[in-house]
Simulated scan of single mutants.
Amino acid sequence: MKNVFSRLFRVLNSSSGHPHEDFLTEVFAELLCDQEMMIDFLGNVLEIPVQEVKYSSIQTQVTFPALPHHQMDSRPDMVIRFYEGQESYVLFIESKLGSPEGTDQLSRYADHLGVLTNQGTNCYLIYLTQYFDEKDVSLILANQKNVVFRQKRWFQIFKWVKQLEAKNIYASKVLDYMEEIGLEDNRQFTPVDVYAIQNMNRLQRMMDECMDGVTDGVMTEHFGKAIQQNNRHTQLKYMERYVKASEQEGRATEVVVGFYITDEDYPFVSVVYEFCPRRCPDVPKVVAAMQNFMAAHPDWRTFNLNTDAEWQGISCDRRLIDFLHHEDHINEIQKFFLEKLKELHEIKVKNPDLYWK
């Protein structure tokens, strides 16, 4: 049987945005509710020299209204408040499991903390990532010299929790879950990894062939030329997808075809129409067009609508395994892409003013 957190995750998988990130935040916040764990975490992981913690509170997904010079509200994953004697402390923790930093996300958080430092509070901004993502502190703290920035990796958290698991039953369950989602401190290649590396070029060529050729021709005809091929590697690193994307007017919307890495045993092969709420001048109009389209095409689904996700929209997905019974996998995937791109073109025909190229 799966670890309890993995079972709960399946129940909560309808969460918008990045569900593993949101779920791990809740799991980790519960661990820090233990006073001894909190003090140890502050001192030995974050290197914040405190001897005692009083009147502590931990909140997750707290929204801070946009400051006058911000374009949007801010919502750090975790906010920790406490006192040591008469000194007050506030920590913003932002966690990333593969996803990229949002638009000026850390700088906006630093600005909010800067307001608190002006009131005499000791403020720390913690950026906690699964993968290496070094930040330029001078840019993040450009206007907030009194805020302290700390950057940590999740494998470091794993090592810290592992030292304490004998004292805390809950910590051992957290470790089980972290192992299952790949946050353990095992930095060794497995035989499967070696095989994947040896076949990396072949797999990439096959995926490229699915998206290029006739697929690229139809995509260009209906939605304009796709962005450069090297963008596919950026998408794979930060968004766990290897795709071809055609950005529309002002990057308000985009049409995407390609391969999406999932929490299931197989990746998805998908065609996507998505919009960026921050850039899209008329979100209700785009959403209405999507809903009208889905009424006639029930195999499409929505994702992330009415959330603070960077990209929201509709997609038509097939599991890669569904194509494996055919003799020519690439040909069948291309057929799927062509069929769904032609369907999607109906939105453009019926709504020519929706920020197309």
Rank of each mutant, 00 (worst) to 15 (best):
S74T: 08
H297G: 09
E179Y: 08
M219L: 15
L354A: 05
L12P: 06
G114K: 04
S14V: 13
E101A: 10
A226S: 14
D282A: 13
D212L: 10
M1W: 09
G250P: 07
V161M: 09
E30M: 14
C276H: 07
P65I: 01
F5W: 06
Q144Y: 00
T129N: 05
V243Y: 00
V148S: 06
L139D: 12
E101N: 08
P298Q: 12
P49M: 08
K348N: 04
M239V: 07
F92R: 01
E165D: 10
S6C: 12
G43H: 12
Y266M: 06
K335C: 10
L113D: 00
P191A: 08
N199R: 14
T103M: 04
V4Y: 10
P277M: 05
T103P: 03
Q228L: 13
L341T: 01
G258V: 02
D299R: 14
D104L: 08
E247F: 15
M206Y: 06
V286L: 02
F5C: 09
H329Y: 13
N292F: 07
D104F: 05
A166T: 12
R241T: 06
D308H: 09
K342N: 15
I140G: 01
Q235R: 07
Q151C: 04
D263T: 11
E30P: 06
N304W: 03
E221C: 09
N292E: 15
N143P: 03
A142Q: 12
R10L: 13
F303D: 02
L113P: 01
C33R: 15
W311Q: 08
Q59G: 11
V286N: 01
E94P: 02
I227A: 14
E184D: 15
I140D: 00
M1I: 10
D308I: 05
M207Q: 09
E21C: 10
Q86C: 11
V269P: 00
R251M: 08
T25M: 05
R187G: 09
L46W: 04
V62P: 02
V214F: 07
A245S: 14
I347F: 00
I261L: 13
I347G: 03
N143D: 14
F82L: 04
K135H: 04
P76A: 06
C316Y: 01
D208L: 10
W160L: 04
S246Y: 00
G313N: 01
M38R: 11
K54R: 15
W300R: 09
N143C: 10
R251K: 14
G43F: 11
S74I: 00
E247N: 14
H18S: 11
A171V: 05
G98C: 03
N292W: 06
F275A: 01
K145N: 12
N168I: 09
L97T: 01
E184G: 15
A288R: 13
V256A: 04
Y131S: 10
S172K: 12
V27W: 02
P49I: 08
N199A: 11
W160P: 03
I333F: 01
N331A: 15
N3M: 08
F158H: 11
E346K: 11
L91S: 04
V50F: 05
